[in-house]
Design a protein around this nucleic acid. Sequence first.
DNA 1: TAGATTGTTAATCGATTAACAATC
DNA 2: TAGATTGTTAATCGATTAACAATC
Lengths: 206, 206
Amino acid sequence: MNKQDIPDIIISRLPIYLRALRHMQAGGKLTTSSQELGAGVGLSAAQIRKDLSQFGEFGKQGTGYDIAFLVDQLRKILRVERVWDVVVVGMGDMGHALSRYQGFSDRGFRVAMVFDNDPAKIGGQVEQFVVLDAKEIVTAIRKSGIKVAMLCVPEAAAQGVTNLLVEAGIKAILNYAPISLSVPTGIRVQYLDPSIGLQRMTYYLE
Amino acid sequence: MNKQDIPDIIISRLPIYLRALRHMQAGGKLTTSSQELGAGVGLSAAQIRKDLSQFGEFGKQGTGYDIAFLVDQLRKILRVERVWDVVVVGMGDMGHALSRYQGFSDRGFRVAMVFDNDPAKIGGQVEQFVVLDAKEIVTAIRKSGIKVAMLCVPEAAAQGVTNLLVEAGIKAILNYAPISLSVPTGIRVQYLDPSIGLQRMTYYLE
DNA sequence: TAGATTGTTAATCGATTAACAATC
DNA sequence: TAGATTGTTAATCGATTAACAATC
């Protein structure tokens, strides 16, 4: 079961399954089926079973899946049974919102450090964090060993900051800036540009 | 050229192309090639050409694409040559950040109304907007004719608010809440749950 | 002209679905 | 047992890539 053997498109669905399963769990459900989970996330039952079969046999014929067990398995597969420290770069409104977001803690993440390059913000407080000088990105992140970053700087600064994050040892970047980033092989980027999300829908509007 | 003839996976790449082209434009470039654009967004030249060929012939052999012209064409295809009014529901940190976001205006969007259900926030001011009572979602949105919403409410409220948005005539929802929404056929949803973005990358981390 | 690059066709590759034996 | 549902195989479907004639 080599990492690169499994298509990324399957990996990208697992967090969706995990989210839906935890939702069921919060509702007091104990078991589910590929049919029911598929309906919950808008995919076919066959697809759910095929995806899960890449990693093991998690269900029982006749009864389906034990939700708590499957949640555990998915958390291990996705490596979020542990907690990842994350840095936030850019203390504008978006960076601010992410620094205060309560949803990370039980999904495997914890904001550990925040940066900005504005002298008016450096040294100030955001939530429980002291805003660090962006000049310290490389040294501070290297020292901490943190591998995950959220990028919330303006477009014009995004590629430059990305280069620093890579130099600092960051391996995964959640990018809110409206720009395609250029990164070396082995560095992963996920894009959350809100305008892109909207433009993916307007095509279909009357 | 029927809407449903063109695969959604192609539509979903067009905003990325548009973003990259405008970036080139801002840098003063006048023409580009499928090779160069592909390199900019991390896709093959063949894919770029194939995607664009679904909508017309926009390039010239030997010289490539006129950037300004291609930008115009993509804006028309995606229907963002006009400006779409958008509502924001949920005036927490995220809704607040989106209400103040400067990036929408030249990408085809304009926040026109914001809602919350917290009496402490209703009637208050966020940026230039007066926060409206969530109870008025259906009537206010119906009256306005707005078709696009951004959803920034807590998980527990998301499906209920979604039902109201659908009732109000909303056809496209950008969802920041950590939940798979259930919507009728014809309503489009794009998901921007930050935890999902992060969990899609941790699988690959050492 | 010579070099570059398009739009398109056919070939390849990969993902999804349907079907079903196994079995809880 | 009978009904339900898994995991898996083979078939289908769809997307990407390679190649190249056309032509700027």
